[in-house]
Design a protein around this nucleic acid. Structure first.
Lengths: 236, 236
DNA sequence: ACCTGAACACCGTTCAAGT
DNA sequence: ACCTGAACACCGTTCAAGT
């Protein structure tokens, strides 16, 4: 290992000129997706970032699908599964939920990446296995455990931010969208849409808000626990 | 009304040559998305379908975003809100869940269309209002009602089919994907991924299966009811 | 009012060629 | 082994022009 990881990176970009490889490409693509949106990720744009031709990237990545796979792996490398070490399964599940939330806050492109139909690679398998383990040890059958895991994944993703296309650090954009939602729902005709007018502030607040997430996580846990309670008592 | 709706439609396409308008464009685009995938929807392709230039479509549709809005409206026109007429709120919510499922089975592109960040048009407002009404009348506060509605929407969408990119009538494709999932998860190293190997059949079965949906819908309802029960008793 | 043609700035991907 | 250049078949969108 002669090369130092930190030699001349222009303004914090994770690319080192001249060192083209799969990991670096995936990391750069992920960074691009998180800061400029998933649509900004293209072979031509990526090539430009590495000061190379678009075709050069095909040496390390089969096609666009494979690139998205690599990005997903790169993202999930930082996923924290330490929640496994809790003693109560409820705390383990809660830990998973909040770890996933943290991941999605750090990587807004996570929503797009995680909802692709693709065979998982090692990092994703690791998380999947750990999650199923927690739920199986809690007393759920395999099918139940799988379904509950899916349930949680989808719900957390939708709770962290409603709608696609958000980008890292776009606080201003979110605020504006929230204001737009409030104005829109708040000014609907009250006779035709009484419930929507009434709920306008809550809809607008859903744009971000920690309270919104906590509320949703509680609802989610209530469902899982209720399901557990409705089963013949084994452990719970 | 001189023109008959049914004069010479080539092989069941909902376009009548020479009658370009917003509704017809939206319907055709939706049909295209449902049968060939959302990516098949382009101005050039759509224009070809109507035997016209791509630019002609811009007379009726502002841009691609507006086109997707119009498609969403076209899709939601067929949404059945008759579940409102049930007497028990649990049946009302169940009715909504199954109506949404029916919509998504008919329109596989629904997943993509419904998860866009956009201001809703009349059909979507109608459904939103009706759903909030059901939940408010059941005794939930505005914020709770909104969150539960979101919860249900996301969960049903993810239950009808896991992963994006499916298309109408692609039963064969789904079957193949299920087989691929089974082979993949079933042949993972047992020592490293015991839970995944064990759960492989359930993961594969999630590709479709009515049982899978019923199971998920029950879990969903269990959560909503548990949340209702945890509140100070007003109606429930 | 409604449609066309040409153009601009993009895509993913293939293939033959360079070093 | 690794990268380039040119090409193909696509995109959304703008603008000036036709009838």
């Amino acid at each position: 290992m002669v090369r130092n990881k930190n030699d001349q990176q222009p303004e914090g970009n994770p690319n080192q000129k001249g060192s083209l490889n799969r990991e670096a490409i995936a990391a750069q693509a992920l960074h691009l997706a998180d800061t400029e949106g998933i649509d900004a990720v293209s072979f031509r744009r990526l090539a430009q970032e590495f000061e190379v031709t678009a075709m050069a990237i095909y040496r390390y990545v089969d096609n666009k699908d494979d690139l998205l796979d690599a990005m997903t792996e790169s993202m999930l490398a930082s996923f924290d599964v330490s929640a496994q070490q809790e003693t109560d399964w409820r705390d383990q599940v809660r830990g998973l939920i909040y770890a996933l939330r943290q991941l999605l806050l750090t990587h807004p492109s996570g929503r797009s990446l995680l909802s692709r139909r693709a065979l998982p690679s090692t990092n994703r398998l690791r998380i999947f296995e750990a999650s199923l383990g927690i739920l199986r040890d809690a007393g759920f059958e395999p099918q139940e455990a799988f379904l509950i895991f899916e349930h949680i994944l989808n719900q957390v993703v939708s709770l962290v931010v409603t709608g696609d296309g958000y980008v890292k650090g776009a606080e201003e954009e979110r605020r504006l969208w929230g204001a737009k939602l409030l104005a829109f729902y708040g000014s609907l005709p009250k006779q035709e849409y009484p419930r929507l007018v009434e709920t306008a502030p809550n809809i607008a607040a859903s744009v971000d808000m920690d309270h919104h997430f906590k509320f949703g996580a509680d609802l989610l846990m209530a469902g899982v626990e209720a399901f557990a309670a409705s089963k013949p008592p084994r452990k719970l």
